[in-house]
Simulated scan of single mutants.
Amino acid sequence: MLIERDFRKELNYRTSRSGGPGGQNVNKVETSVTVIWNVAESIFFNQEEKELISTRLKNRINLEGLLQLTVSESRTQLQNKKIATDRIVEMVNICLIKRKPRKATKPSKRQVEKRIQAKKQISEKKENRRFRI
């Protein structure tokens, strides 16, 4: 079950010059957008959800507790800002999906017996290949 949380108001943006296509536009316009979100100070999520986000996105959260994402795909700052915002919202919402616990199962007696019979057959085949004097 996906619970959409829109925490876009808490996002901060930083722009910088980005490489890639754009010709001389790249050298003078700051089109790369970095979106920054402080997970711990969010008012949209409760403590349990914040911990869940922090553990699942621990590789993307820095030591200050900031989740950062940089986008420089488009030639326009506005488009990069939209892409970055959508990605970070989607990333966090996916983290909040509760995973179903795995139920341990045992193979049936029939399956175990079938596997043992197959092993015996292969063993006999290899035994018959032996050279006897």
Rank of each mutant, 00 (worst) to 15 (best):
T85D: 12
K109S: 14
F7T: 00
R129Q: 15
A40G: 01
R60W: 11
T15K: 09
S72H: 09
L96V: 10
N59Y: 13
E124I: 06
T70D: 08
E127A: 13
N93H: 13
E30N: 09
R130F: 14
Y13W: 01
V89L: 14
Q24N: 01
Q121R: 11
Q47N: 09
P21M: 05
E30R: 06
T15F: 10
R99E: 15
S72L: 00
E113N: 09
Q111Y: 10
V35K: 00
R14G: 08
I36C: 00
S74P: 05
K50E: 13
Q111C: 05
Q117A: 11
S72F: 05
L2K: 09
S108P: 09
V112T: 12
I61E: 06
V26N: 01
I88Y: 06
P21R: 03
N80F: 00
G23W: 05
S54Y: 13
S108M: 03
R56Y: 06
E113L: 11
Y13L: 10
F131D: 07
K106I: 15
V29N: 07
V29H: 01
Q79T: 09
I43T: 15
Q121D: 15
V29Y: 02
A104L: 12
Q68L: 15
T76Y: 01
N12D: 08
S42V: 02
R102C: 12
N25C: 00
R110V: 15
Q111M: 08
Q77W: 10
K98V: 08
K98C: 06
T55C: 09
Q117L: 09
E4M: 06
K58A: 10
R87V: 05
Q111R: 12
E90W: 02
I97N: 07
K114Q: 13
T70S: 12
F45W: 04
L96A: 06
F7Y: 03
S18N: 05
Q47K: 15
I43W: 09
Q68F: 00
R60D: 12
K120T: 13
K125V: 13
Q47R: 12
R87I: 04
A104Q: 11
E124C: 08
Q121A: 15
S108N: 07
E10T: 04
L78M: 11
Q77N: 09
E48V: 11
A118P: 01
P101F: 08
F7A: 03
N93V: 03
V92M: 08
Q117D: 11
Q68E: 15
E90Q: 09
K109T: 11
N12V: 12
K103D: 10
R99Y: 11
N62T: 07
V112G: 14
I97G: 02
